[in-house]
């Protein structure tokens, strides 16, 4: 038992070392750390009430300056402050919606893979139907039905991600379920549920971690998309996609309204993708080399 633990720890170490050697992944991680810090200390960097939502018509559509690094928007609000606070929304939506997909999809996939037969068939056919609707459209439909709000956006994006995880977990469960250590744990009297959680889930973590990192990026993108067409976060709350949507009317004279929120999205997604790719390579050394 000790031995097994030690082995596990050293494997984690090895993965971390491989990841640390990947410069691009480390760049992604560094950007993410900065972003998370921005999100956590957003209130310290810029006060919400006075800088982010308070309108100041005298100051409207000002270009970047020492006072307003990224300029001001059509209501005279500081774009830098709004982007910083917007990172909160993006990261929270990203994490929560992916957790929703992961938990629901994971449970469905685990049951489908573990029990096989009819259970598997029914679950996976339902998943197929979900997959037949392009996920952005599915999310739009859900938000359209439930109404535009942050919670509904998270729910919509979370639900549209369920099939992905159901498939990953199902495949992983099927590939490990007949291996000896699982049979061994059943042989010593573990129930199905404990087997699923104790033995199978830890053994299919690798693809899930990779997918989760990449889906946080996808979720942030979807949130911005929904907000952009007016179905997501409602003004005056700062959200990158909503800011872009607002800036559309000033493309000719005030590019900074659309430029900076867009760059914020690009950098965030890029960082997550770099980290996700790095994790995939680190967890599957076969691919590299």
């Amino acid at each position: 038992m000790e031995n097994k633990k030690a082995k596990k720890r050293s494997m984690t170490m090895e993965v971390c070392q491989r990841l640390a050697r990947n410069k691009m992944a480390m760049l992604g991680l560094a950007i993410l750390v900065v972003l998370v810090l921005c999100a956590v200390f957003a209130d310290v960097i810029a006060d919400y009430e006075t800088k982010v939502v308070a309108q100041n018509i005298a100051n409207r559509l000002k270009g970047p300056s020492a006072e307003h690094w990224f300029g001001t928007d059509e209501f005279g609000r500081d774009i830098f402050a709004r982007i910083i606070h917007g990172s909160r929304v993006s990261l929270v939506v990203g994490l929560i919606s992916v957790s929703v997909s992961l938990i629901l999809g994971g449970i469905l996939g685990a049951f489908a893979g573990f029990y096989g037969g009819r259970v598997d068939n029914v679950i996976m056919r339902v998943m197929d139907i979900f997959l037949a609707v392009p996920s952005t459209l599915l999310a739009m439909t859900i938000v359209a039905a439930l109404g535009s709000s942050l919670v509904n956006v998270m729910l919509a994006i979370g639900v549209s991600g369920i099939p992905t995880y159901a498939r990953i977990v199902r495949a992983a469960v099927m590939s490990v379920k007949d291996q000896e250590f699982v049979e061994a744990s059943r042989a010593i009297g573990a129930t199905n549920v404990t087997t699923i959680f104790r033995e199978i889930i830890p053994n299919c973590l690798a693809p899930i971690i990779v997918q989760a990192t990449l889906s946080v990026a996808g979720a942030i993108l979807s949130t911005a998309s929904l907000s952009f067409i007016g179905l997501g976060v409602q003004p005056p709350d700062p959200e990158w996609g909503a800011m872009l949507s607002g800036g559309r009317n000033f493309l000719r004279d005030a590019v900074h309204l659309t430029l900076f929120p867009g760059l914020a999205i690009v950098i965030t997604i890029l960082a997550l993708n770099l980290l996700g790719d790095g994790l995939r390579d680190a967890l599957d050394p076969r691919l590299k080399q």
């Binding site: 998309s225 952009f228 996609g241 872009l244 800036g247 867009g262 999205i265 690009v266 997604i269």
Partner: peptide, 12 residues
């Protein structure tokens, strides 16, 4: 290209 939201690319 993967990281750029298409609506933002369109605006740019």
């Amino acid at each position: 290209g993967v990281a750029t939201p298409n609506f933002w690319l369109g605006l740019m």
